[in-house]
Design a binder for these strands. Structure first.
Lengths: 152, 152
DNA sequence: GAAGAAATTGAAAATGACAATCAGAAAGCT
DNA sequence: AGCTTTCTGATTGTCATTTTCAATTTCTTC
C-alpha cells in the first residue's frame, strides 16, 4: 500500500470513528470488518455484492448488519448511495475532494465515471436562481457504451 | 380550454392512439379515462395518487390497470417516469419539444422544474468523449427550497 | 477488572412497491 | 353476430429492504 492510499484510508476511518463517538454508537468487530471490505471495494457495489464477498472470510456476519452498516457509512459521509434504477441500491466510497457522476450503459451495465466542473457550476447557478440550497445531486446519463453501440 | 392547450392535448392523444394501433393493442374505456386524468394532472404524481384520484368518479378501475396504463404511456413516449429516491415511481406528461430537470426539496417535497441548455450541451460533450450514446438522463438537485432554508 | 446500562447482532418475519396471474369481460376484425 | 385476441381487476407472487427481538457485545463507572 502506498503512502497516499494509506492517508486516504486513514481519513475515512477517522471520519467514521469520530461519527461513532459523536453519536454514542459502538465500535464492533463487524463494523470494522465491513469498513475494511468497503474501503477495499471496487466502486458501485450493492449490499448483496459486499455481503457475499464478506461471507467467504466472515460467514457469521448477517445481511442486515451489512445493510445497516452501509447506511451508516452513507450517513457519516464516507459512502455515497447510488441508484441506477435497477432496483438495487449501490454504494461507493466517497471522499470530499473529488466528486463525479456516472454514465450507465443500459445494455451491458458498464459504469463510467465522469467529472465536469462546468456542469457543477451551472447547477449552482440554477439553484441560486430559485434560492435553493443544494445538499446533493444525482446526474446520470443512460445509453449505450461504445462497445454496445457497435454491436447494435 | 384555450386553443394551444387543445392542440397540445390532441398531440398526446394522437401519439397514444397511433401507438395502440401500431402494436395491435385495444382502445378501452379505462385507458381513455386514465389518459384524460393523466393529461389533466399536476406534474410528478405517483401511481397511487392517480389511482385514488380516479376512484372518486371511476371506482371500478383497479390499481393494476392504472399501473399498467402509466407504463404504457411511458412506453409510447407521452409520459416520463421519475424516481426521486423515495421508493415511489412518479410520472409526468411529456412533450417532445421541451425537456426539463428537477430541484427536489428534501424537507417539504417541493419540486421545481428547470431547464439549462448549456448543461445538456456539456452532457453531450462528456458522452462524446467516451463514444457513449445517450438515450436518456436523470439530473436532480436535492436540498432545501428557499422557504425551508429560512425555517432551518 | 467486574457490573450494569445501552447499543448491536443476526435470523427471521414484516413491509411495501411493483409485477405476474388468471378467469371473466370487452374490443375489434371478418 | 361470431370469434379471436387483448384487457381488466382482484388476488397472489416477488424481491429488496426494513424491522423485530432475544441473545450478545461494548463501554462506562465503580
Amino acid at each position: 500500500m502506498n503512502r497516499l492510499l494509506r492517508v486516504y484510508l486513514m481519513d475515512q476511518v477517522t471520519i467514521f470513528n469520530d461519527y461513532v463517538r459523536r453519536k454514542g454508537l459502538k465500535n464492533t468487530s463487524q463494523r470494522l470488518t465491513i469498513l475494511e471490505a468497503f474501503l477495499g471495494s471496487k466502486l458501485h457495489f450493492s449490499t448483496e455484492d459486499l455481503y457475499f464477498r464478506l461471507r467467504k472470510d466472515h460467514p457469521k456476519i448477517g445481511y442486515a448488519t451489512v445493510h445497516r452498516t452501509l447506511k451508516l457509512f452513507a450517513e457519516c459521509g464516507i459512502a455515497r448511495e447510488l441508484d441506477f434504477g435497477d432496483g438495487q441500491a449501490r454504494f461507493e466510497p466517497l471522499n470530499a475532494d473529488q466528486h463525479h457522476d456516472h454514465l450507465v450503459c443500459t445494455n451491458c451495465g458498464l459504469i463510467i465515471e465522469f467529472t465536469e466542473p462546468q456542469i457543477e457550476k451551472l447547477q449552482e447557478q440554477v439553484a441560486a436562481q430559485y434560492n435553493f440550497k443544494i445538499e446533493r445531486h444525482r446526474h446520470e446519463l443512460y445509453g449505450l457504451c461504445s462497445k454496445c453501440t457497435k454491436l447494435s
